[in-house]
Amino acid sequence: MPLIEFENVSFKYGDSENYAIKDINLKIDEGEFILLTGSTGCGKTTLIRCVNGLIPHFHQGVLEGKITVNGYLTTEQTVAFLSTIVGVVFQNPENQLVSLNVLRELAFGPENMGLPREEINNRINETAEKLELKHLLDKTPIELSGGEQQRVAIASALTLKPKILLLDEPTANLDPKSAKMIIELLGALNKALNLTIIVIEHRLELLMDYVKRVILMEHGRIIADGRPAEVLYSDEAERSGVNIPRLIRVFKKLKQSGVNLIFNPVTISEGVDALKVMSRC
């Protein structure tokens, strides 16, 4: 049974005439690391809100179809219950760090769940250790750099021990090095905890070393869904105007000029391998 399943899901926000997402069918298994992309307003955030139940419980509107997460119908569960299965990290960490120090921020979710103190302390220790936040525990959000804030936001979702982590443009305001560190962290969490991760991102090249699947949306619909090589070399990707990583653009151009490729590289290592093959023949 897939961990997340969408069956013919469409959603229209209460005050809107158009569907924000339309006819979504989607199956996601445990441990997948997925990149969700598409031009602005195509419905990526809306899709994510459906997974953790913010739609339809927080954002009202017309929801059609069936969404199952870990076997539960999202319509029949509360957002609070779903938060122990699905953690979310939003674009702006400022709005997500609601406490005045990091320790309390990490405790916030488990406290709301009414977990025993000892358990909460264990989770904080464990998470702070893994995300290298120990030295920041008594800082206020304002004292943290953008990258640290985003790490705390991730940590504070993880203390609820979710199986799924959703991230909505987590690196949009970060400098390149901090952005890279956040993505590396996600890669590590995916491997170490078998955490299922869905990241929304416009700068695809950041994620190429980690994701095994890319979902591409346009006007509320999924127009391509598959391995990065499949999706990013497709005509849909070209047409929908996503920011195809430049390495892929190089190989696409080489192909057009008649070079034979035995496979479609997406990462730098694959690119080097492809060139090795080519230079040999």
């Binding site: 598409g38 031009s39 602005t40 674009q91 443009e169 949009a172 305001n173 416009h202 105007g241 996503v242 920011n243």
Partner: peptide, 9 residues
Amino acid sequence: TAGQDLVQK
């Protein structure tokens, strides 16, 4: 360009 898609960029 923060948070902008390709067309906007």
